[in-house]
Computed example of a mutant assay.
Amino acid sequence: MPPFPRGGRTLDSATDRITDPWDRELLEPASSCHPRTLRQMRWTNTMIEVLSPQLLVSA
């Protein structure tokens, strides 16, 4: 996203961004991917918790 999408004016609020039609096009795919992204983050955090003690012991 360009830093000044509206002719040099900065965005005032999050609702400003959502009402912008260009951002609505991006909001839909991002919203549909969000649950999967959260699941992947939880899995990654779990793997870090499980593997970090093993790495500390073997190092």
Results as ranks from 00 to 15, higher is better:
53 P>Y: 01
29 P>Y: 01
38 L>A: 09
55 L>Y: 08
32 S>T: 12
51 L>E: 06
57 V>A: 02
18 I>W: 05
33 C>L: 15
14 A>Q: 10
50 V>R: 12
31 S>Y: 12
17 R>V: 14
56 L>A: 14
53 P>W: 01
43 W>T: 10
23 D>N: 14
55 L>T: 04
47 M>I: 04
4 F>W: 11
40 Q>E: 03
47 M>E: 05
8 G>T: 05
7 G>S: 09
31 S>V: 15
21 P>H: 00
28 E>A: 15
59 A>K: 08
36 R>N: 10
17 R>L: 12
39 R>F: 12
37 T>Q: 15
6 R>V: 03
30 A>P: 02
22 W>C: 06
1 M>K: 05
23 D>T: 05
18 I>Y: 11
32 S>N: 10
21 P>F: 01
7 G>Q: 06
47 M>K: 05
35 P>K: 02
33 C>D: 15
13 S>K: 04
46 T>R: 05
36 R>A: 14
24 R>P: 01
45 N>T: 09
11 L>F: 03
9 R>S: 10
24 R>Y: 07
45 N>D: 08
16 D>P: 00
41 M>V: 12
48 I>R: 08
46 T>V: 09
17 R>Q: 08
7 G>V: 03
9 R>G: 04
58 S>G: 02
33 C>N: 14
32 S>E: 14
52 S>T: 07
19 T>H: 11
43 W>V: 08
58 S>D: 06
26 L>Y: 11
54 Q>F: 11
37 T>L: 15
12 D>R: 14
48 I>Y: 06
45 N>F: 09
38 L>Y: 07
53 P>I: 02
54 Q>E: 05
30 A>W: 09
43 W>F: 13
6 R>S: 04
9 R>P: 00
4 F>P: 02
23 D>P: 01
49 E>P: 03
8 G>F: 03
45 N>W: 06
36 R>D: 09
27 L>K: 07
4 F>S: 08
